[in-house]
Write a protein that binds this DNA or RNA. Structure first.
Length: 404
DNA sequence: TCTGGGGTCCTAGGACCC
DNA sequence: TCTGGGGTCCTAGGACCC
């Protein structure tokens, strides 16, 4: 979907069309206040000189999406809001409306599956679609079906999208970027050298900042340069799996299937504080946030019908370094108090001398709640005995007072 | 002026078991 | 007397993606 979060807001505020709009920001405290004051949620970036006020509004937030007009000013996804304000003080800022975004996400996806049932979810604004067996899916190399999907989505939602059609997901993903917004791009196997090899290696889905930097140090910048390397040389530098995969990717090869269904592995809740907090000095505030995260997470699990057995915490220090601690229970749970207690034990195993900017709670090892039968699993087998391995970490803290 | 939130997957070491 | 070869599970960190 093209500039999805921003486009969803433009449906509500068509008067913003063509203007630089950025979606994101902190907003926690001021959102309600702002709605009351303005009757709508749009805020023009306050001049950067009135920094304290601006900071109150956009806080530590980042940009989720910027309209194409805003991108002209050099602002873009994942950029800090305060930096965006400097680059483009005339931009209009809106908080993300997750409910609205999810509504349109469901709508565009159901529109697609009515036409082409084999669809893989790739987040709120992106999917893979298998054209292979769709009637007419091969006409004009897929262009006819792509146009049909674009038209159906626009009619249902008023939103535009960009579609790449190719022999596999790897190439289709790259193709989808060629003609944005509202474009269609077809990439055939034969187009590898002309359309793919000139691109930067970072355009490969799976090569991120770190791998990109490492390749640059090895004087490899384009996908063509990557394709020219011996597989063994890449394996020597990036390891067996990654090296071999890189070589395949550079040659446009990808046999991964379109996965239409999957079960979640973990669920989590995390929050960055408005200001850094200290475990001792801000103990009460931190404790309340901690409990709130556990409560919300338990609600998420229960609402979606999952239980998990590995409880984890994550925290981020003021220097932005993160640490995690996990603790696996011998029973499955979606209970707020159990999560809170276990996460509390995990939290004690982490140094709490430095100030914190983020706290998170996670539950992993998920299974569907209905599989949680005291005697039998769905396949009729009696579950294995719980893992009774002595747990040093639990033993060492079980008798001390809870910190929070 | 530092840098959101929610995910998945991979790696590597250690414990433990047969 | 120098100490195999699987295999699974757990944990911590990190890369990457939307």
């Amino acid at each position: 979907m093209d500039a999805f979060f921003a486009s969803v807001e433009l449906l509500r505020y068509p008067q913003l069309k063509g203007l630089p709009v950025v979606i994101g920001g902190g907003w926690r405290k001021v959102d309600e206040e702002l709605r009351a004051a303005q009757g709508e949620r749009a805020l023009r970036f306050i001049p950067v000189e009135s920094f304290p006020l601006l900071k109150d509004y956009v806080g530590r937030g980042v940009i989720t999406t910027a309209t194409y007009a805003a991108r002209q000013f050099g602002v873009g996804s994942a950029m800090g809001m305060m930096k965006a304000a400097k680059l483009c003080p005339q931009a209009i800022v809106l908080p993300v409306d997750f409910e609205e975004v999810r509504k349109y996400s469901r709508l565009f996806k159901s529109t697609i599956t009515e036409i082409a049932p084999l669809m893989q979810d790739r987040g709120v604004d992106e999917v893979y679609i298998d054209f292979t067996e769709v009637p007419g899916g091969q006409r004009e190399g897929g262009r006819v079906l792509a146009r049909l999907i674009q038209k159906a989505i626009f009619e249902k939602t008023g939103l535009t999208c960009s579609i790449g059609v190719a022999p596999n997901k790897l190439l289709a993903k790259m193709a989808s970027e060629f003609n944005k917004p509202n474009g269609i791009s077809i990439v055939h196997e034969d187009d590898l050298q002309t359309m793919i090899w000139p691109l930067h290696v970072r355009k490969i889905n799976g090569i991120g900042p770190k791998a990109g930097e490492k390749l640059a140090r090895l004087h490899i910048h384009t996908i063509g340069e990557l394709a020219a390397q011996e597989p063994q040389w890449l394996i020597d530098h990036f390891g067996k799996a990654t090296g071999a995969w890189m070589h395949e990717a550079a040659w446009g090869r990808d046999d991964s299937p379109v996965v239409t269904e999957s079960e979640p592995v973990s669920m989590s809740r995390e929050t960055t504080f408005d200001r850094d907090l200290h475990a001792v000095r801000d103990k009460a505030e931190l404790g309340a946030i901690f409990t709130e995260l556990c409560t919300k997470l338990a609600e998420d699990l229960q609402r979606k019908g999952y239980v998990g057995k590995t409880i984890g915490i994550k925290l981020r220090y003021d220097n932005f370094k993160s640490v995690t601690r996990d603790q696996t229970l011998d029973t499955y749970t979606a209970d707020a108090q159990t999560i809170r207690h276990t996460a509390g034990l995990a939290l004690k195993r982490v140094p709490l001398d430095k100030r914190l900017r983020l706290l998170g709670v996670r539950v992993g090892g998920l299974i569907k709640a209905e599989e949680l039968n005291p005697t039998r699993n769905l396949d009729g087998k009696v579950p294995a005995a719980p893992n009774n391995r002595p747990h040093d970490a639990i033993d060492s803290v079980a008798h001390t007072d809870q910190l929070f």
